[in-house]
């Protein structure tokens, strides 16, 4: 009972910051010291969903960037995860460490170096440039999660399928991928959210031209319109929440998450 009460308190605290956001997004002229707004308004949300609004454009850009960087990270993360999870080879520890560096070392210096090249390639301030830079954190997370997924995968299934007549390609599509699908969902979930939430990387190489949702929220936070800021903030949460609920079962996959606890 004590445990339950404690947990409910903790969960309530975790939810607390959402409360003013939700209220502000529909409040008008909510001045101190009013505890509840005197007047509601749909103006902030109307501004968000107005056709051609910057928020909607940012939403779209964020979606495209997150989807592309997740797909790319998955493409390189699947083979790497297999090697790291299933095979023993000299230099494995060092390779794991190199893959881990981008998520534990500040990316600022790297970003300034990359930007130098992106400017010369004409990629600075383009969607492609941002996607490329978003691979910095997404590849490590994806690879770690997938290596743990593979480590818990019984290769006997593949041997079994081969002996029943499956070619290596058939084994991959009909046996391996379906069996590790829950783990892939977790990896993709992580990568998508990391890209979706990324601010600093976009800020540096987006050159103010690639306006993802976090960029728009950042600008709005520095302005004074709290109602609009709250509405944008709530908007930024929606897809992440849908994605999380959609894959809530996958998040219970301890094998996949455990991968982050063994880096």
């Amino acid at each position: 009972m004590i445990r339950r009460t404690l947990l409910i308190l903790i969960i309530a605290t975790l939810f607390l910051p959402f409360l003013p956001l939700l209220v502000w997004s529909v409040a008008q002229g909510w001045y101190f010291p009013q505890l509840v707004p005197q007047q509601g308004t749909g103006a902030h949300w109307a501004a968000v969903v107005a056709p051609g609004s910057r928020v909607l454009q940012g939403f779209g850009q964020s979606l495209v960037i997150a989807a592309l960087s997740t797909a790319l990270a998955l493409a390189v993360g699947l083979p790497a995860g297999r090697a790291l999870g299933l095979m023993a080879f000299p230099g494995k520890g060092a390779i794991k460490l190199v893959l881990l560096l981008p998520i534990i070392v500040s990316p600022l210096a790297t970003l300034m170096g990359i930007q130098f090249v992106l400017i010369r390639l004409g990629l600075n301030g383009t969607l492609a440039g941002v996607v490329l830079v978003h691979l910095l954190p997404t590849i490590p997370y994806m690879t770690l999660v997938l290596s743990s997924v593979y480590a818990n995968f019984d290769t006997g299934y593949e041997a079994q399928a081969r002996s029943l007549g499956a070619t290596p390609t058939q084994v991959l599509w009909q046996v391996t991928l379906p069996l590790i699908a829950p783990g892939i969902v977790v990896g993709a979930l992580f990568a998508f959210l990391i890209s979706w939430n990324e601010f600093l990387l976009t800020f540096f190489v987006g050159g103010g031209r690639v306006l993802t949702l976090p960029m728009i929220l950042f600008t709005s936070l520095q302005g004074g319109n709290q109602g609009l800021t709250a509405a944008i903030a709530v908007t930024s949460v929606i897809p992440a929440l849908i994605f999380l609920l959609f894959s809530s079962r996958a998040l219970q996959d301890d094998a996949a998450i455990g991968g982050l606890g063994d880096v």
Binding site: G156, A159, Q160, L179
Partner: peptide, 17 residues
């Protein structure tokens, strides 16, 4: 390759997909 050997393998744990 194993898939063209016309053999079939039954492993210890069964390993049903």
């Amino acid at each position: 390759p194993p898939e063209r050997r016309e053999m079939a393998l039954v492993l210890q744990r069964g390993l049903l997909f």
